[in-house]
Design a protein around this nucleic acid. Structure first.
Lengths: 325, 325
DNA sequence: TTGTATGCGTTATCAC
DNA sequence: GTGATAACGCATACAA
């Protein structure tokens, strides 16, 4: 492989000049520049990017940590991240973790090893205590409704949003409200649970553990939910679910159980993905792609200012009324 | 940042010994190894990965090129790629291109610049002529039904599969068959079109250009298709569509047009994503995740043998009969 | 405006 | 077993 030294020799200039041409630096005479460009063209030279990175000390690579790319929520975030990353000439390194802490650590180690200029956690399984050890490794941003003050975070206010959703259901006459979560111990789910507890107390309704369903994320989960619903002694009149996929699963299997929506049971979900529009699902919109965009901007900000911020950024949500409540 | 030289000094050994410990090489006495490990632990040393890459000459990074991550087909491929990549300690660098050739070239340039050890094209917009210029840049694999003999490729036989699907529709009494494509000029679509032409000729049916719909990829596209169908003078009795999303869109909007499926119009699609199961869509299964897996294996094979293969790999498809035909 | 010399942090070679 | 030392290829102070 040819190096800038070869170019320099062939063009009759110094390596510095070659490097200047390569990086569009000023102070290169047009003739030398041309000579260099000509040689580069001739021998089809390409820079060794590892050498560039080593020399520069950074890479323009950022890590994106998520449990599963094959889920609309996460692929939407990545889409948002990607669109913004392109603008800033950043490349994305994907870490599909299945919530295995070891995989998440891999990203953090690569951040510390300076392969990555930053890491975006779309979701996480590792604890804060572990995460904190990487505070100085480089920019880290969390896409979650976070209470900590060590890392910047990005989310809708899940507690408020969930309360808002409950109020809406209540305003439609529901008090018997069941709900589903994606991952009981996830930070966002915790907020949602808290909101539920508060509101049920206000209403004087008991908290029925059998009305709280964990690990509901996909269409299939929604479908299975309808099966489970059959075996419930006391039946809720409304279901506040994790996301539009779960809602879609419910809608798609409602018919076979002869359940009418919203007459027999109302469905309210989160996200507002295209499927919600198409199936007429009433949902609370989360600006998912915007989250991705802001996450990238946060990383860039940290990189440029060379400081870790810990700003908690709250995004707006809004109710999209359609036909399931 | 501490370097191996610092470690060496502190542990009273040479940099070579430190490097050996770091890479689990043999021929290091237990005492020295321990001393090194102790220092590493103490000062919380981490390797600079750029330096490792520069020195080694490769990176364990592979590029994944796709138009849009936010589509089930592509996120499924990436899921398959990711699962296999993890096994081989490979990291994925994502290139979301929107079919812009410049973005695809970026991946190829990084391959040539040795940042990437290989590139997987889940789909592509650039021409073969351009692609061929990167033949020696490193391993490249194409997830498409390809006729070229320069790069390894990976796909179901789209022509056969489409013919098979048409035969199935014909066996159910259909001869008035319309179809949709994702991207008319894509290699897979070309095969499908060819199969259609052949089969219609056999049947003595005319090719109606108004029965061929391009750019149909999403649920929304499927929904819009039903709208377009209304304005058709001659109506088909069957629709052979790009993928399960399009089929789902059709199903979800059929009711509002008072169209019964499969009585009024039969729907056959490709992929067999979860939504096909849930909505009872008859579909031709494509082993998408397996494609991703094999793509990674192909890259690894090229890397290890240090040779570009050009093997065309054909994956099996199968019909999943459900309720839409 | 140009060039020399050095640093970036690691791995590989080869002699001991 | 161990350790100098030379790559690896580029960027950049500093000198000219």
């Amino acid at each position: 492989m040819a190096t800038i030294r070869d170019i320099a020799k062939l063009a009759g200039v110094s390596v510095t000049t070659v490097s200047r041409v390569l990086n569009n630096h000023p102070y290169v005479s047009d003739e030398k520049k041309e000579a260099v460009l000509k040689v580069i063209e001739e021998i089809n030279y390409k820079r060794n990017i590892h050498a560039v990175h080593l020399s520069r000390g950074f890479s323009n690579l950022i890590g994106v940590v998520l449990p599963k790319i094959d889920h609309p929520y996460f692929s939407s975030i990545v889409e948002g991240i990607s669109e913004e990353a392109i603008k800033h000439h950043l490349q994305l390194v994907l870490f599909q973790t299945n919530y295995e802490p070891a995989k998440e650590l891999e990203a953090l180690e690569l951040l510390r090893g300076t392969l990555l200029d930053g890491v975006i956690f779309c979701s996480r399984a590792i604890s804060f205590d572990v995460l904190k050890e990487y505070k100085n490794a480089g920019p880290i941003v969390l896409c979650e409704d976070s209470d900590q003050s060590h890392f910047p975070s990005l989310s809708i206010p899940h507690e408020q949003a969930f309360q808002f959703g409950l109020d809406y259901l209540i305003s439609k006459g529901h008090t018997k409200i069941a709900f589903t979560l994606g991952r009981m111990e996830g930070p966002n789910s915790k907020k949602r649970r808290k909101a539920y507890k508060t509101k049920m107390k206000e209403l004087g309704e008991p908290i029925r553990s059998e009305w709280i369903f964990d690990k509901c994320l996909s269409i299939t989960d929604g479908k299975q939910l309808m099966e489970k619903l059959q075996h419930l002694e006391k039946k809720p009149t409304a279901f506040f679910v994790t996301n539009d996929q779960v809602a879609a699963g419910i809608l798609l299997s409602a018919e076979q159980y002869k359940i009418k929506i919203p007459q027999d049971i109302a469905i309210l979900s989160f996200d507002n993905q295209p499927i919600a529009d198409i199936m007429g699902i009433t949902t609370i919109e989360i600006p998912i792609k915007k989250m991705g965009k802001l996450a990238v901007q946060s990383i860039i900000h940290c990189k440029e200012k060379r400081e870790q911020t810990n700003k908690k950024m709250t995004l707006p949500f809004r109710l999209i009324e359609r036909k399931t409540v």
